[in-house]
């Protein structure tokens, strides 16, 4: 039984007076082992696009002492949202941005965007973000307007910044709502049973995930 199933079955206990120690004791009695995830196939993006996007999410959120975007399967989240949630004009705009980024990468590195080294991905993605904050904000605002510029250079920038700013948002939300980060990185405390009013923070203290 994994922890979530254990939690869900707590509902069967209701009707009895449930004490805090009963709840937590019940939870910790269940050892948990993460299931091996079978190879993932995209439902919306092409496999090549998915591969390139996934590598770029890892530049935005690289693995450190904590998992990276790839570990958290942020790409799966992005692919799913594009299929079920995003409007067609939004996904089209995003993919147009990826296309333009890819063309630039091909020019610069002499290979398609799906085949770059991790250093090259880092260099490519960073070149869009490592600019002064004000300049970045301006480009982000322009990219999120409906009106498409006519000038070719401005047009590239319009789509490319739409792509990267959208990708950044999706990486943050996908990462922080993932099961891996929620259960194993952040403080997972779904049934606290008690409100602790004034704990001492340590360098290991993390925010709650739920």
């Amino acid at each position: 039984m994994n922890r979530r199933e254990a939690l869900k079955s707590i509902t069967a206990l209701v009707g009895y007076s449930l004490t805090i120690s009963a709840t937590t004791g019940f939870l910790s009695s269940c050892g948990e082992k993460r299931a091996v995830v079978p190879e993932w196939k995209s439902v919306f993006l092409s496999q090549a696009d998915a591969k390139a996007i996934e590598e770029m999410t890892e530049v935005i959120f690289p693995k450190t002492a904590t998992p990276g975007a790839k570990d958290a399967q942020v790409i799966k989240y992005i692919d799913d949202l594009f299929k079920f949630i995003y409007k067609k004009e939004e996904t089209d705009k995003f993919l147009e941005g990826l296309k333009r980024v890819s063309l630039k990468a091909a020019d610069k590195y002499g290979k398609p965007v799906g085949g770059l080294t991790s250093e090259q991905y880092t260099e490519l993605v960073s070149s869009y973000f490592n600019i002064p904050e004000e300049e970045f904000s301006e480009k982000r605002r322009a990219a999120n307007k409906e009106e498409v510029p006519t000038d070719e250079i401005a047009k590239d920038e319009y789509y490319e910044y739409y792509y990267f700013t959208t990708l950044k948002s999706l990486t943050i939300s996908g990462y922080f709502t993932s099961e891996l980060v929620g259960e194993e990185v952040l403080d997972y405390n779904p049934v606290p049973g008690v409100y602790e009013t004034c704990l001492e923070e340590t360098p290991e203290t993390r925010i709650a995930s739920v």
Binding site: D187, N189, P192, G193, V194, Y195, E196, T197, C198, L199, E200, E201, T205, A208
Partner: peptide, 9 residues
Amino acid sequence: EDKYTRGKK
């Protein structure tokens, strides 16, 4: 800055 809470009131 060194204090935090746990549980959700």
